[in-house]
Computed example of a mutant assay.
Amino acid sequence: MACHCWYLRQIVTRCCLCYKLRFGVLLIGCIFLTWFLYLTFGTGFMMECIFPNEYQKANNPAPAALKTTMVFSFFGIVAAAMLCIGVHNNNEMLFLPFLVFAPIWIIVHILVLIVYSFKLVIILLTVLTILLLIYAWIVVWSYYVELLFAYECELEPGYAFS
């Protein structure tokens, strides 16, 4: 018999600052979509307009931080857009890219804390982003579980999940 995670649905039936999980997940998806779009366009603007000399010199390799930010932001745009479409269509499988990439983004933020110089602003922003990602992951996971087992009561008795 499969674990249906009833305790998760009992603990997280609503999310903070939102009335229903569906609205909360859609709100989180839209916020992350806007955030990643802003990061992508802002990084592209910085590479083209603010720091163009670093990317045109052949002798000195360009700093990789901005390019890495653009790559992560592109995948963030795809994951957040799939999350919004999944909420709109009640398709829990479209939540999986966000559920997979959020822990990766948390690990990347931990690496940022290790690699970069320890300034108070960087530490506060990184810790705040990690906490926001953990909260978003919990909300999306709870709505994913709710959608996954939404039609369970309509199944015949003795139906086994495989």
Score class of each variant (00 low, 15 high):
34 T>N: 05
42 G>V: 04
59 N>I: 04
52 P>M: 08
33 L>I: 00
18 C>H: 09
67 K>L: 13
49 C>T: 07
65 A>E: 14
35 W>H: 11
66 L>V: 00
60 N>D: 11
69 T>L: 12
50 I>H: 05
66 L>Q: 11
62 A>H: 07
36 F>P: 00
34 T>W: 02
45 F>P: 07
56 Q>D: 12
54 E>D: 14
40 T>H: 02
23 F>G: 04
68 T>N: 15
33 L>N: 04
67 K>P: 01
19 Y>S: 12
60 N>L: 14
70 M>V: 03
65 A>C: 06
55 Y>G: 12
42 G>K: 05
68 T>D: 11
49 C>Q: 10
41 F>T: 13
53 N>D: 12
73 S>P: 03
38 Y>P: 02
72 F>T: 04
20 K>V: 05
48 E>L: 14
65 A>Q: 13
48 E>A: 15
66 L>M: 11
26 L>I: 01
50 I>D: 08
68 T>E: 14
61 P>S: 09
60 N>M: 12
58 A>P: 03
43 T>C: 10
28 I>N: 03
46 M>P: 00
48 E>D: 08
67 K>E: 07
30 C>S: 10
48 E>V: 14
63 P>C: 01
32 F>K: 04
55 Y>D: 14
22 R>H: 04
73 S>H: 01
45 F>I: 13
40 T>I: 06
21 L>W: 03
50 I>N: 01
74 F>D: 01
56 Q>W: 05
18 C>F: 06
49 C>D: 06
63 P>Y: 02
59 N>V: 03
44 G>F: 08
48 E>Q: 12
55 Y>E: 15
56 Q>F: 05
55 Y>Q: 14
49 C>Y: 12
68 T>W: 07
57 K>A: 09
21 L>Y: 03
38 Y>M: 12
56 Q>T: 15
39 L>I: 08
49 C>G: 01
